[in-house]
């Protein structure tokens, strides 16, 4: 290789007098840091910072009906309206946190279990890995429709299954109390595989020595897991919670696909994201929805910050 590749740029330049091209190349190389990073950052920046600033501005106005309609600056009134709204806003906050919390607990617990099952090689591993990948890549809207059929109270397979073991039929998605739980189940089905993959990557990167040493000392499998493996895995677990948690808080597709506008006629599955979407695009209450979004954003940032702090504490 060394013989074959003479410095090409030098060869190219040798024939020519140092000109504009070389000057440009020189300049480009000196500023490559920003030359490389700036386009992407500008793209994201323009598409984020401007809309975010606009959302912030809209949240202080009474904008509704049409974005182009004249608006009046009304200060923090939208925030007061939203924060004192116990009909829609606070229940939506509750549902968002319930959805995310329960889904995360189930996904991490199940994910850890499955990752431990897959940890050591076995025959047929390939097929299990394929099965794990399928829910992960499936289109969420299609997945929502699939579950709608399975959980249909009359013709769904879920109730057939329950009937087979003698449990009375459940309303699932159409029940006021069961809808949120059912959507959590869908989320767990679709996203536990992602937690499995992350935790499995963590497990494979662990060194075997601590585990081996504990085994020599006579620790049983449970002791080794809870006192050796789990503490060592904590940083990875938190990364999994962080990545999954951000998406879980923002879940929209399966909720909108299964229950439609407003999260169902009784708002059974109306999380903050669904609520804000409805305010914006089903009811055109831009001012109000912007206030909800700013508060929602603060909740997301807040929970991320807490987790990152926790991760730092654990990694030490």
């Amino acid at each position: 290789m060394s013989v074959m590749t003479p410095p090409r740029s030098a060869a190219r330049n040798a024939g020519r007098a140092p000109g504009a091209r070389e000057k440009f190349s020189d300049w480009a190389n000196r500023h490559r840091k920003w030359l490389f990073a700036a386009p992407a950052m500008a793209f994201v920046g323009v598409l984020i910072i401007f809309p975010l600033a606009w959302t912030l501005y809209l949240s202080l106005t009474d904008s509704q009906g049409s974005v182009r309609a004249a608006t009046e600056f009304i200060g923090l009134e939208n925030y007061l309206t939203v924060l004192s709204d116990v009909e829609r806003f606070w229940p939506a906050v509750g549902r968002t946190l319930t959805f995310t919390g329960i889904a995360l607990v189930c996904e991490v617990a199940l994910g850890m279990g499955i990752a431990l099952l897959l940890w050591r090689p076995f025959r047929g591993e390939k097929w299990v890995r394929v099965a794990i990948l399928l829910p992960l890549v499936a289109t969420p809207v299609a997945v929502g429709m699939m579950w709608r059929l399975i959980f249909d109270p009359n013709i769904g397979f879920a109730n057939q299954l329950l009937a087979a073991v003698g449990i009375p039929a459940q309303p699932w998605l159409s029940g006021q109390d069961t809808a949120l739980g059912t959507t959590i189940f869908m989320d767990v089905w679709q996203w536990t595989p992602m937690v499995v993959l992350i935790l499995l990557a963590g497990l494979t990167s662990l060194s075997e020595e601590p585990d081996e040493a504990a085994r020599m000392d006579g620790a049983n499998a449970f002791q080794r897991f809870f006192f050796i493996t789990l503490p060592l895995m904590m940083p990875t677990v938190i990364v999994a919670i962080l990545l999954r948690g951000i998406d879980a808080l923002k879940t929209f597709d399966i909720l909108y696909a299964t229950k439609g506008k407003g999260g169902g006629s009784f708002h059974e599955v109306e999380t903050l994201n669904v609520y804000a979407y409805g305010l914006s695009f089903d009811y055109n209450q831009y001012g109000l929805s912007s206030a909800v979004l700013i508060l929602f954003f603060m909740i997301i940032i807040g929970s991320m910050w807490l987790l990152t702090m926790r991760k730092k504490a654990v990694s030490k």
């Binding site: 984020i48 606009w54 182009r68 994201n273 914006s280 979004l293």
Partner: peptide, 23 residues
């Protein structure tokens, strides 16, 4: 810090961008 700016895009709820974009 620059990476953080780009990664912010993963965190922001999409709805908050849609109204201004739509406009």
């Amino acid at each position: 810090r620059s990476a953080l700016v780009v990664l912010m895009a993963r965190v922001i709820p999409g709805v908050s961008l849609l109204v201004p974009w739509y406009y």
